[in-house]
C-alpha cells in the first residue's frame, strides 16, 4: 500500500497474525510472531511444538496466523522442520521458508537434541526461540533458561533458582552454525533485519528472542516493551549476532549500562532478592558483557558503580 509523506513506517505493514488470539495482556511472544512473519512473508511454513504459541494460535479448527502452521510434539520442533524442508525440496519449493518456532522449554531443555542434530546436518531451516525464561504455558515452572534468583512455581522463594541461565547462543556457535543471533521485542527493526538476514542464508539459522511475560514475571502488562528494552540497556540481555561460529557483532553497544537493579525491581519474581544477591547478578552481567565485547573485537570495557 502506498503511503503519503506524513507517515513513515519503520517495519513492514503486512499483518500475518490476526486479532482474536488467546495471548495474555502485554504478551511478548505475540509480538515476536508478528514481527517474524512481517519479515518472512506469506511464503512460510511454521512448525510449533508445545509452547505458549500452541495455545495462542487458538483451538481446532481455528487459527490466528495466516500461514500454514504445524503443531507437533514438544521435543521435535527442529526435526519436524527438517522433514518439512526435505519434503518441500522434493516438490521443488526451495524458496519457501521453514520456521521452527519454540519457546525456551522446547529449545533449551526438551528440544535441544533435535536442534543440535538439525544444526549438525545444516538443514536449511530457521529456528526461532522466543525466550520468556520459564515454562509459562504450563504454569511457570523453571527451565534451564530461567535466570539466577528467579521465582517460579518449582523454585519457590525459599529455594529460588541458584543456577545461572544456559548460554544457548554460544552452544549454537560451537556447532559452527552459519548464523545465530539474539534479538529483543523492544527493538523490532533490529529483530526484523535479523530474520530477513536469516531468510537469505542457506543452512540452519538460530534466533534467540527475549520476550517478556507479564503473568510469569509478575510484572505490569504495560511495562512489557519497557522491560524488553531495559534488559538490553542494562546489558542483562545483550543483542548480538555470530556468523559461522566465529564472527561476533554486537548490534547494540551499550557504553554506559544502567544498573541491573532497575530491571529486576520491576518484576515480582525477583522481589525476594537481597541487596547482596542483586550486586552479585550485577557483577556477573557486566563480566559476561565485557567478555562479549572482547569477542566482538571492541576496545571497550563497561562498568557500573554498585551503590552501597
Amino acid at each position: 500500500m502506498e503511503r503519503g509523506k506524513t507517515m513513515k513506517l519503520s517495519i513492514p505493514e503486512e499483518e500475518l497474525v490476526g486479532s482474536g488470539h488467546l495471548a495474555c495482556q502485554g504478551c511478548g511472544a505475540t509480538l515476536c510472531m508478528r514481527y517474524a512473519l512481517k519479515a518472512l512473508g506469506q511464503n512460510t511454513i511454521l512448525d510449533i511444538p508445545a509452547c505458549c504459541w500452541s495455545v495462542i494460535d487458538g483451538p481446532f479448527p481455528h487459527t490466528s496466523v495466516k500461514v500454514p502452521l504445524f503443531h507437533t510434539a514438544f521435543e521435535t520442533a527442529a526435526c519436524v522442520a527438517s522433514g518439512i524442508r526435505a519434503g518441500l525440496d522434493v516438490l521443488g519449493r526451495g524458496e519457501t521458508n521453514v520456521v521452527a518456532w519454540a519457546g525456551d522449554g522446547g529449545t533449551f531443555d526438551i528440544g535441544i537434541q533435535a536442534l543440535s542434530g538439525a544444526t549438525e546436518r545444516n538443514d536449511n531451516i530457521i529456528y526461532i526461540c522466543y525466550d520468556n525464561e520459564a515454562y509459562m504455558n504450563t504454569g511457570i515452572q523453571r527451565s534451564s533458561a530461567t535466570p539466577y534468583g528467579a521465582w517460579t512455581t518449582t523454585t519457590p522463594v525459599k529455594h529460588f533458582k541458584k543456577m545461572p541461565k544456559k548460554d544457548l547462543v554460544r552452544i549454537m556457535a560451537a556447532h559452527r552454525i552459519p548464523y545465530t543471533a539474539t534479538a529483543s521485542v523492544g527493538y523490532p527493526e533490529d529483530f526484523i533485519a535479523k530474520v530477513k538476514k536469516a531468510k537469505e542464508i542457506q543452512g540452519t539459522t538460530f534466533l534467540h528472542i527475549f520476550s517478556p511475560c507479564p503473568p510469569g514475571w509478575k510484572s505490569q502488562p504495560e511495562k512489557s516493551i519497557q522491560l524488553a528494552r531495559l534488559a538490553v540497556s542494562t546489558c542483562y540481555f545483550p543483542v548480538y549476532e555470530i556468523e559461522n561460529g566465529e564472527k561476533y557483532t554486537v548490534n547494540k553497544v551499550i557504553k554506559k549500562p544502567r544498573p541491573v537493579k532497575e530491571f529486576l525491581e520491576q518484576q515480582g519474581r525477583f522481589r525476594h532478592l537481597t541487596e547482596e544477591q542483586v550486586n552479585g547478578i550485577q557483577k556477573n552481567v557486566i563480566v559476561s558483557y565485557n567478555e562479549l565485547l572482547k569477542k566482538a573485537g571492541l576496545d571497550l570495557e563497561v562498568h557500573v558503580e554498585i551503590k552501597k
Binding site: T6, M7, E13, S19, Q25, G26, R34, P188, P214, P221
Partner: peptide
C-alpha cells in the same frame, strides 16, 4: 507495539479496534 494487532491504520491515523483491544496499555 500492539500485541493484539488491534490498532489499524485508517487514513494515516491509528485507530483502535475495541472489539479486540485487551487493554494491556502498552
Amino acid at each position: 507495539f500492539c500485541p493484539d494487532i488491534c490498532i489499524v491504520i485508517e487514513d494515516e491515523n491509528p485507530v483502535i479496534d475495541y472489539d479486540y483491544c485487551k487493554g494491556c496499555a502498552v
